[in-house]
């Protein structure tokens, strides 16, 4: 692994660094007191890394995940994503970034219950402004990649938990994002299915996909090449597994 860049405010990240946070802070104003969920997180993730973010509840991992996923904006510090400083962009600009750069995989899948797998996967492309024909081809390709070529026209309630999560992964991949961002992706799955999904992530990583996964399960985190542990809003440990 290459050296971590010495980053100072005013610098630009190296082209190889996909995610860079510098003294990233997020405070919540809860009326009488201020909760400091993140207190200056410095983190650099390079292209094609497979990183697991761990930590006990309240450690700030969900907050970090929301910030990395551009769902939230930090109250302090900087966040660079794919060479662009996104920490102070507008709502709509963030929506664009989420659409182009990030593919979310949620614990509860978050599929539209009344839409087919194909339509669910098409959603990000609709917001990207693609025409119907192009959307379909791309969505079919993404579903084929996760092994659901024969389930395209099924609705979520006609699919197993593992298949639903595969649909969600296909949806996350369909825009060819820079990062696949997974939040407890196996939290609602049994161990066999979890293993399957972890295999899908491993395969995607092998194909060059950058994967960031938030989990509190050590055995799931063990699938990643690098494990970042948060505690009390700070990075407590950053371990790389020898390949």
């Amino acid at each position: 692994m290459s050296e971590t860049q010495e980053f100072r405010t005013g610098d630009t990240p190296l082209p190889d660094v996909l995610i860079l946070t510098h003294k990233l802070a997020r405070e919540y104003d809860m009326g009488s007191e201020t909760v400091r969920a993140l207190r200056g997180v410095n983190l650099q993730i390079r292209r094609n890394e497979y990183v697991a973010v761990m930590g006990p509840s309240g450690s700030g991992k969900s907050t970090l995940m929301n910030l990395i996923g551009c769902l939230d904006t930090p109250t302090g510090g900087e966040y660079w994503l794919n060479g662009q400083r996104v920490s102070d962009l507008s709502d709509d600009a963030l929506a664009r970034i989420r659409n182009k750069e990030i593919g979310f995989v949620f614990q509860t899948f978050n599929l539209l219950p009344r839409a087919t797998a194909l339509h669910n996967v098409e959603l990000p492309l609709i917001y990207a402004g693609l025409a119907a024909r192009g959307r379909r081809a791309q969505a079919e390709h993404a579903l084929t990649r996760v092994g659901l070529a024969d389930r395209m026209h099924h609705k979520p309630n006609e699919l197993s938990g593992g298949q639903r999560q595969r649909v969600a992964i296909a949806r996350a991949l369909v825009n060819e994002p820079s990062i696949l961002l997974a939040d407890e992706p196996t939290g609602n799955l049994d161990s066999t299915t979890s293993a399957e999904i972890m295999q899908v992530f491993a395969d995607l990583h092998d194909q060059g996909q950058t994967v960031v996964m938030v989990t509190h399960e050590a055995d799931i985190a063990a699938h990643a090449a690098r494990v970042v542990t948060l505690r009390d809003g700070l990075v407590a440990a950053d371990q790389r597994r020898a390949a």
Binding site: A95, R96, R98, L123, R171
Partner: peptide, 9 residues
């Protein structure tokens, strides 16, 4: 969900 997938306001 739609917002997370890139829907603007």
């Amino acid at each position: 969900l739609r917002k997370s997938l890139g829907a603007r306001r």
